[in-house]
């Protein structure tokens, strides 16, 4: 049903894409070149703040985008909603993996230096792992259903169901495990320990990463739609 798929405003897309490219270049330059205060233990690893934390924010944003489109799919049954939900999850999972890896590396060489530990069951780390498991289950579920409409519906239900249980995880984990992350019980809040010059790069980095997510996500959505249109064109099978 190519008629049901909306056209994309290419001009707007290109504007945002170029903006994100310039913006992220500036963020990267600032992240590596600006001088930062050397704090004991952290030293230059503090620069990871510009990458690790925005990646994590981006994954949460992607999760909300995905859940929102799943919700809209159940309301409207528009195929494009399913495509959007899936692609937001794909890009979100990518950022989640990157955030987990940067976090593991950071923790390994600061908090757990000398212990040789890569994984320490920090609440935030555990939550990221659970979130990635949910994404993984979502993709497995999608691949197990052939018929597109059924797949879209079942996957949307699972996505929303997972989104509903997520607040409990946010509530339960900090009670069960101790955290070294800033803002956890007894730890100073983020804004107390961050030098103004780091905030100067950090906030733009958050915007930049979310922009990067948007570019990758819309690109993938467009690609999927084009591929679908091509498939319908080459092989016009009657819908089931």
């Amino acid at each position: 049903m190519p008629g049901a798929l909306p056209d994309i405003d290419l001009r707007r897309y290109r504007w945002i894409r170029n903006g994100v490219v310039v913006w992220m270049t500036a963020v990267l330059l600032g992240a590596f070149l600006l001088d930062i205060p050397r704090i004991n233990i952290l030293e230059h690893t503090a620069r990871n703040l510009y990458f690790h934390v925005p990646m994590w924010f981006t994954m949460m944003a992607a999760f909300f985008v995905s859940a929102y489109h799943s919700f809209r799919y159940l309301q409207t049954e528009a195929p494009v909603r399913d495509v959007r939900a899936e692609q937001a999850a794909v890009v979100g999972a990518l950022f989640g993996i990157l955030g987990l890896l940067t976090g593991m590396m950071w923790a390994r060489f600061t908090w757990y230096v000398g212990t040789g530990k890569w994984w320490n069951f920090d609440p935030k780390q555990t939550m990221a792992a659970v979130q990635l498991l949910i994404y993984g289950a979502y993709f497995v579920l999608r691949s197990s259903i052939e018929e597109p409409r059924k797949r879209a519906r079942i996957a949307a239900v699972y996505n929303l169901f997972a989104a509903v249980t997520l607040p409990f995880l946010l509530y339960v984990l900090p009670r069960q495990m101790e955290s070294l992350h800033p803002g956890a019980e007894g730890n100073p809040a983020f804004s107390d320990i961050t030098h103004p010059i780091m905030r100067l790069v950090f906030y733009p980095a958050c915007i930049g990463f979310i922009g990067l997510f948007w570019v990758l996500y819309t690109q993938r959505v467009r690609m999927t739609l084009v591929r679908k249109r091509l498939q319908d064109h080459l092989d016009p099978e009657p819908a089931l």
Binding site: L133, I134, A137, V140, L141, S144, I145, I154, Y158, L173
Partner: peptide, 23 residues
């Protein structure tokens, strides 16, 4: 949900466990 999928058996734990971590 899994009753509607093609290979029904081993999918349930995969879907279930991540959701039940808080529980």
């Amino acid at each position: 949900l899994i009753a509607r999928t093609a290979n029904r058996g081993p999918l349930l734990p995969v879907l279930l466990f991540p959701l039940l971590v808080p529980l």
